[in-house]
């Protein structure tokens, strides 16, 4: 019996009787991060990082939550569980599971470049590593985020000159907070969509220092947004809600923007390949750093990535999960 098995309900540790990011309600769920395809409602008890806690409460409502620090040990029967920074979004964690000297690590979603608030991705040595592969093809190589921020800032300035509002499209949890960082250097007037506002409020109340933003409300006159910067979630893109910003230019911020076709399909004026996931080299580096004898590859380009790992001498297998439906993992709805 492997320490973690792949079941209909999700990744299951029988020895400790808990699930990691289950997609159906269970008794005990250990949660990597607060995106809805990893943190689903209905379970009896949740364990997460304390930065994730307010976000889980925001998204799943009241429930039985236990929050821990990174590296803090929690015991399920004789199984030791600890959380370690994954660098994906605020609070996102890899889950380390140890039983009788055997170590498994579930990556959740991760990125290897530090973004300033998600915690720096920590390589953990283990016997078995379960990794995501959202951008598991070598065409996905991110530019350093400072360069992308610089591009975004230039774009905003260009729009200002043309008297256009800059509307940045990014996922409300994760991407939006990074964008605020990039944007606050060039403007003081930042307006956000309600979905981003909710996350913003939750984080601010939890003690995070984020740039001041204003929530967009229906009563705001059109002139309010003139030449300002707006941050909105993907669901708003192309909706009537956007009309109030006219004339505006839309910039989509997602790893998928790496490929021209995606950018053109989304009809974006600009695309910024800013991702909260590891790129190809990031994935490779992370997998190698674990020193794992066996690797399972979940959601993304799992077939190509695991085949490549096998060719370079790493025993890798594809696993089907129900992850990858929220945030930039799903390129169609986002």
């Amino acid at each position: 019996m492997p320490l973690i098995s792949f079941t209909d309900k999700g990744l299951y540790c029988a020895q400790g009787n808990f699930y990691i990011d289950p997609w159906q309600p269970v008794d005990k769920a250990v949660i990597t991060h607060a995106h809805s395809d990893h943190a689903r409602p209905g379970s009896q008890a949740y364990l997460c990082h304390h930065h994730t806690l307010p976000l889980l409460q925001l998204r799943l409502g009241q429930g039985h939550y236990q929050a821990v620090e990174w590296n803090e040990k929690v015991y399920f029967n004789e199984v030791t569980v600890s959380l370690h920074p994954a660098g994906h979004i605020i609070g996102s964690s890899q889950i380390r599971v140890e039983y009788k000297g055997e170590v498994w690590v579930v990556s959740g979603d991760y990125k290897t470049e530090a973004d300033g608030f998600s915690g720096d991705f920590e390589p953990i040595s283990c016997n078995t590593f379960i990794s995501e592969s959202t951008f598991g093809l070598p065409i996905y190589n991110w530019k350093p985020q400072q360069e992308i921020y610089h591009d975004i800032q230039n774009w905003i300035r260009t729009n200002e000159v043309a008297n256009k509002t800059s509307v940045l499209i990014g996922y409300s949890l994760g991407k939006a907070q990074r964008l605020l960082k990039a944007v606050e250097e060039v403007t003081g007037s930042i307006y956000v969509h309600g979905a981003i506002w909710n996350v913003h409020e939750t984080l601010t109340q939890a003690g995070w220092k984020l740039p001041a933003v204003q929530r967009i409300t229906p009563d705001m006159p059109k002139e309010t947004f003139k030449s300002s910067v707006v941050i909105a979630p993907p669901s708003a893109d192309g909706s009537p809600w956007m009309r109030r910003f006219s004339p505006h230019s839309t910039g989509i911020c997602s790893g998928w923007m790496q490929v021209r076709g995606n950018q053109r399909r989304r009809n974006a004026d600009a695309g910024f390949a800013l991702s909260d996931h590891a790129d190809w080299n990031g994935l490779l580096k992370a997998v190698k750093a674990t020193g794992a004898e066996k690797v399972f590859i979940t959601h993304g380009f799992q077939s190509a990535f695991s085949r490549y790992l096998n060719e370079i001498g790493i025993d890798a297998h594809e696993v089907k999960t129900e992850f990858g439906t929220e945030d930039e993992e799903s390129q169609l709805t986002n």
Partner: peptide, 11 residues
């Protein structure tokens, strides 16, 4: 660092 001139705005 010339990577930066593949930026959408051109820098």
């Amino acid at each position: 660092s010339y990577a930066s001139n593949s930026s959408p705005t051109g820098g």
